[in-house]
């Protein structure tokens, strides 16, 4: 069973990171959120719509936009702006409205100057930003990103995370961010940890990364700062609890 007794509710405007080893059910959970997969038992509701209700399928997929891991395999058109237009075109939006949305979405991810480019000329981070713009153009309320940075270099990773954080902050978009990078998860408001298709932890980054032992046992890492703080504490050095970011560690050590 890929998902087992998962009981999770994500509020509008939340930024949730989902962690877990390979095969823990993260991607399966993500695909439930826009009805690519349907629950075999139990219910998955998106903005009050049951994902098994076939007549609401396109409303659900418009509400929840998805960005996948491989940037090459989710860009459909041979020109950046045509690809961003793909979603609204499918929804039957009039052409001048599509043009407006495409311009807005490309501006929102900072890709306006690449509008006429062929996708294969872009870097991985830029391709992922185009993919994000493609969901924004559908007027998506919730963005689900399934390991969007797994195939990117550090620069691309930063680009994507910055873009997502800005969209969350400025447009109040709901974000579900699946990742293997703990530094990225630390940017979320809430972290959900999965194991064998079950949710085993659910809390703030501080609460989750504060328990380094527990994370280790699950085969997961913690951000470097949290690990250093934990090791120092074991050596008997007095440090405040719940250090997650480098800045917090630096401030605590300088005191």
């Amino acid at each position: 069973m890929a998902l087992d007794h998962v009981d999770l509710s994500i509020e509008e405007g939340e930024f949730v990171a989902i962690l877990g080893t390979n095969g823990s059910g993260k991607s399966t959970l993500a695909k439930q959120l826009n009805a690519i997969l349907l629950p075999t038992s139990g219910v998955c509701r998106v903005a009050g719509m049951d994902t098994r209700a076939a007549e609401r399928l396109w409303d659900i997929r418009q509400t929840v936009g998805m960005v996948f891991q491989n940037p090459d395999n989710q860009i459909i058109a041979a020109i950046v702006e045509d690809d961003v237009a793909f979603g609204p075109e499918n929804l039957g939006v009039p052409s001048d409205e599509i043009r407006r949305r495409v311009d807005e979405s490309l501006a929102a991810v900072g890709m306006t100057s690449f509008r006429g480019f062929a996708p294969h000329l872009l870097s991985g981070g830029q391709k992922q930003r185009v993919a994000i713009a493609g969901t924004l153009a559908m007027k998506t309320k919730c963005l689900v990103l399934d390991e969007p940075t797994a195939m990117l270099d550090p620069v691309g990773r930063r680009e994507v995370l910055e873009t997502v954080r800005r969209l969350h902050r400025e447009s109040g978009i709901t974000v579900v961010y699946i990742t293997h990078f703990m530094e990225e998860a630390a940017a979320a408001q809430r972290i959900v940890v999965m194991e064998d298709g079950k949710i085993v932890e659910d809390g703030s980054p501080k609460a989750i990364f504060g328990r380094v032992d527990a994370m280790r046992k699950r085969g997961l890492d913690v951000p470097l700062a949290a690990e250093v703080a934990w090791k120092l504490q074991k050596q008997g050095i007095q440090l405040p609890e719940n250090i997650v970011t480098n800045e917090e560690l630096a401030v605590a050590l300088c005191r």
């Binding site: 826009n34 396109w58 997929r61 039957g92 559908m138």
Partner: peptide, 16 residues
């Protein structure tokens, strides 16, 4: 990815 972006064939599709 195409399904996730509401692709359902040519019916009712518009063009930019």
């Amino acid at each position: 990815a195409m399904e996730a972006r509401c692709y359902r064939g040519g019916e009712g599709r518009t063009r930019m």
